[in-house]
């Protein structure tokens, strides 16, 4: 059985809100090291990989590996019922057919409990190879969100070009074009505001803005975001959660020119 208490219910709420439009149903795979999730969107362009480590919970108990098939629309609605200061306890019994969620508010005696019916979700699991990316860009997540939003005005596609000491986001469409350049800086006092670019070799790849805008919704989850790019491999967008809880990663297949 699984029993885990998350200090802040809002964390899970933000995760679900960021993912629910890409994924309808998915399995939460729970084992003694934590809770993980991998799911592709229906057109197999984007992949969501979530890891919440056991250390991020207090307490965390999972004696047997279980897969909890969850409908995200339902879970999102339930998570809306969580207060900002609530903590969250999730429970699933041996061979259970429901996932129980309990919200406890820290400053009053309010306790709300919800049970969500589990589903049999059968989705393909993809093996994601370890990749040495040519370029790794770290920037404030709000900045990433804004870039994606602003460039959507011009086109459905953004070209991300990483060169030494700068990253350029370019969008050009029928009505015009636009570009946003981000340069590395060291924000002394605020680590989240830092921009760094680690470059093995320059890369230039095109991606669908529609998906990037979906990913950018996770900006509320973490102050900074890491974009990892290499030629001919999917882009990885990683939001690392505070307190070493884990990460929410998105993978996006690039757009390819005509063969």
């Amino acid at each position: 059985m699984l029993e885990a208490r998350l200090p802040s219910a809002v964390t899970l709420k933000k995760i679900i809100d960021a993912v629910k439009e890409l994924v309808q149903d998915a399995n939460f795979d729970c084992n003694d090291s934590g809770i993980a999730l991998q799911a592709m969107d229906s057109s197999h362009v984007a992949l969501v990989a979530l890891l919440m480590r056991a250390e991020g919970f207090d307490p965390y108990r999972c004696d047997r590996n279980i897969a909890l098939g969850i409908n995200f629309a339902t879970l999102a609605k339930v998570m809306k019922c969580a207060g900002n200061d609530d903590n969250l306890t999730i429970k699933a019994g041996e061979d259970a057919d429901v996932l129980s969620l309990m919200f406890e508010s820290t400053n009053s005696d309010r306790i709300s409990e919800f049970d969500i019916k589990l589903m049999d979700v059968d989705a393909d699991h993809l093996g994601i190879p370890e990749t040495d990316y040519s370029a790794t860009i770290k920037m404030p997540s709000a900045e990433f969100q804004r870039i994606c939003r602003d460039l959507s005005v011009m086109s459905e596609t953004v070209t991300i070009e990483a060169v030494k000491d700068a990253v350029k986001f370019i969008a050009s469409g029928d009505t015009g074009s636009g570009s946003i350049t981000v340069k590395p800086n060291q924000a002394v006092d605020k680590k989240d505001m830092e921009v760094t670019v680690q470059l093995q070799e320059p890369v230039k790849l095109a991606f669908s803005l529609k998906y990037l805008n979906h990913f950018a919704k996770a900006a509320t989850l973490a102050g900074s975001v890491t974009l990892s790019l290499s030629d001919d491999v999917p882009l990885m967008v990683e939001f690392a959660m505070d307190n070493d809880l884990g990460y929410l990663r998105f993978y996006l297949a690039p757009k390819i020119g005509d063969e």
Binding site: D29, H44, A46, L51, R53, L126, G127, P254, I256
Partner: peptide, 30 residues
């Protein structure tokens, strides 16, 4: 003219659904 959106299954391979392989995707952390 517009570039073709790539598919993830072209890059990541589906792992066979055996008990062991289910864990593979998490091997970095697990």
């Amino acid at each position: 003219s517009s570039g073709v959106q790539g598919r993830l299954d072209g890059f990541f391979k589906v792992t066979p659904k055996t008990a062991m392989d289910g864990d593979k995707k998490r091997k970095a952390d697990a």
